[in-house]
Design a protein around this nucleic acid. Sequence first.
DNA 1: CAGTGGTCTAGACCACGAA
DNA 2: TCGTGGTCTAGACCACTGA
Lengths: 239, 239
Amino acid sequence: MRNKYIQIYKDIVDDITKATYQPQTLLPSEHELMDKYGTSRETIRKALTLLAQNGFIQKVQGKGSIVLDTPRFDFPISGLVSFKELANQLGENHKTIVEKLELLPPTEDMKGILQIDSSEEMVWEVQRVREIDDEKIILDKDYIKSSKVEKLSREVCASSIYEYIEGELGLTISFAKKEITVEEPTKEDRNLLDLEGFSNVVVVKNYVYLEDASIFQYTESRHRPDKFRFVDFARRTKN
Amino acid sequence: MRNKYIQIYKDIVDDITKATYQPQTLLPSEHELMDKYGTSRETIRKALTLLAQNGFIQKVQGKGSIVLDTPRFDFPISGLVSFKELANQLGENHKTIVEKLELLPPTEDMKGILQIDSSEEMVWEVQRVREIDDEKIILDKDYIKSSKVEKLSREVCASSIYEYIEGELGLTISFAKKEITVEEPTKEDRNLLDLEGFSNVVVVKNYVYLEDASIFQYTESRHRPDKFRFVDFARRTKN
DNA sequence: CAGTGGTCTAGACCACGAA
DNA sequence: TCGTGGTCTAGACCACTGA
């Protein structure tokens, strides 16, 4: 069986979420887990390291691994979560309106951001408004390199660009750099969103990279402030 | 030498920041690094895993480890960074004003947040205003369990509570859960901060845990929106 | 095909916590 | 002291990339 440590990881995640292993108690020791899963200690340790990274346990030397009760659900925008997942999690009535879908030559700014050298490369510009409970809450402005994604349709934009890219095109998104600031709404924001009296929008800038470390997309997500929420779990790393 | 893999990690970080290893090029292979550092492959791999987690490299199977140029500096509030580090990074003229320092019985809310059972446990309430370039920008409201920190002085609060706790008291902070939202300013915010015309504050709620997975502090950081910036680096994890 | 990284093993020794 | 997790090793086999 390949990826034994991931199987073990999932198995223990199950046991934690089903409360077979209770919060604030100790997991079985690594030696006991070796016996239980019939594997070597390093493999058990890989599974435990994954659990710790994802906030399920806390390892304490000389003592054991403590099961955490930090509620790990409700991660609306953390990591690489897309709007589709977000909306599903919220379980609310949601809709996506594609305001713009064009293949254009990049501005100088965008050439810098997307690391475009060639004078021929074009950029997909997509603008989508996210509506939740009949209120236009989020404006997503995407810029995608045409060399990575040749075709793009309104249908794909309305459901999920990520599913298309990872499913149909077989590309793998690997990491992202995110920057959150608060700005005054632009005229565009006011036109496209139900901003009512709000005098700020929360801007999430997202630089998205593929497996080979090449940038492939820049997204600017502009949120009405009252509906914005960002959750983060940070573990102190060694030195 | 203990912690060989951390030494190797730091050494390679140096080589990357000094551009000995150039962005977008490949690191030496794991086998070559084994020879260079005279160690086993798993140890090299631990160092490389750390580099990947911290955004310095991207590992690609069958190919090698790509050096990233994602500028990893400018992380104002990411992770567990304290105000002192933030201010130092900004290199600006800054000051901390201790508005409040009291040992009080906890409210019911705070009992829940800090997981207090005993009817005797008290809570330190600290309020500090952060001034940068003569503008009062941030209001930090800390709540600390008296069972973890018995004494606390205005001097400690004015410099760095974390340095006191980790240095003097020998406690180790291990992880934190952070939640970012945008709210309307309270009267308190208006009184203590230079909010001028701003109609929002950015609220960062921080739940801070020690090594043994016990919660020890809750902090609410209230920022003037124009000075707020949060940077995050997210790597997609396996399943 | 050769070279790369990914997984796994069996065993060793060390550092730390609790009794 | 004993049981825990932390580090390290030498070697094996597999999966992927690119020529």
